[in-house]
Design a protein around this nucleic acid. Structure first.
Ligand SMILES: [Mn+2]
Ligand SMILES: [Mn+2]
Ligand SMILES: [Zn+2]
Ligand SMILES: [Zn+2]
Lengths: 157, 157
DNA sequence: ATGAAAATGAAAACCATTATCAATAAAGAT
DNA sequence: ATCTTTATTGATAATGGTTTTCATTTTCAT
């Protein structure tokens, strides 16, 4: 099992350095938290989690670091309709993991899905091409979210 | 030209009454503003517009009425990434006009498009069906936005 | 016209996010 | 290991869109 617990420098350190940023304890901790969850955390969520291990790290730093991470393309920032921004690691050591979301309007649960991406990619590509031509609009990104009721919430009176 | 300037009760009054809400001057004015634009107005935009005719109507009422309208399904509320919510009439007398958006990250312009390309329709149907089955998720709505550069912003410097 | 209930406006409160700024810590040079 | 530069941090205050509060006004069925 190569490298499994080797404790070498985490893969993202090079990313920071590449951008000319310093590697710090708070940054390490924040990316650490994000890399250990599949949830869509708010700044405060992350703050609370980081706080357990480093009580001295402030919420301001969480916000600042998240902005950096978004700028670097390491983190996605989403708005699911509750008032807070939600953050999620954009990629792991294995590469990108672009995906779309199912948002339950009953319990605010967010489901990631990558399953249908493959079939979607083809159609998405064509859609984007068509729009680009029709409106002379250079598409760089897209946001696709489906809203509805999750299994649990469908069975609630 | 049947009914063109007939000045009969606007079509949305019945909607308010149907929900048990009263018809008031501010509500009339707010829907009026929304029905005369194709832009995506913020609460303040609407306030300013209404203010020209009814200087006594306050911003609070704008917010309250917009929330009502969204609840009634008469108005869509969007978040395009600037900090303010944007509102847009969901339908006219002729029915729904569901559409998607192209958002320019250069000038914040938002382009509506309703003439979905075949690929997009297929993409949506296929995706929604697959997702519903796989996750047992009842999809009721979707949000699709493409981000990029509009024609003008592509030709800047 | 009357009166109960709904709706409004002014002001204060909310609250996620940002800006400020003095203190601290990272990293290259010595 | 120490020094030096300067990015980074944390406490605090400020911001700004949106909500709450509550006394006053308006709607509309009677
Ligand atoms: Mn996700
Ligand atoms: Mn629109
Ligand atoms: Zn749910
Ligand atoms: Zn533009």
């Amino acid at each position: 099992m190569p490298g499994r617990k080797a404790k070498g420098a985490p893969w993202w350190q090079g990313r920071f350095r590449g951008y000319g940023y310093r590697m710090t304890v708070p940054r390490e901790a924040i990316v650490g938290v994000l890399s250990e969850t599949s949830k869509h955390l708010s700044a405060e969520d992350i703050f609370l989690e980081v706080h357990k291990v480093y009580p001295s790290i402030g919420l301001t730093t969480i916000y600042r670091t998240l902005e950096l991470l978004v700028q670097m393309g390491l983190v996605f920032k989403f708005d699911f309709g509750d008032k807070r921004a939600r953050y999620e690691l954009a990629e792991g050591p294995k590469g990108k993991r672009h995906h779309h979301h199912l948002v339950c309007i009953g319990c605010d649960t967010v489901i990631d899905y990558t399953d249908f991406i493959d079939e979607e990619i083809e159609l998405l590509g064509q859609t984007e091409k068509g729009l680009s031509k029709k409106f002379n609009f250079k598409i760089t990104n897209h946001l696709i979210q489906f809203y509805g009721l999750c299994k649990r919430c469908q069975n609630k009176k």
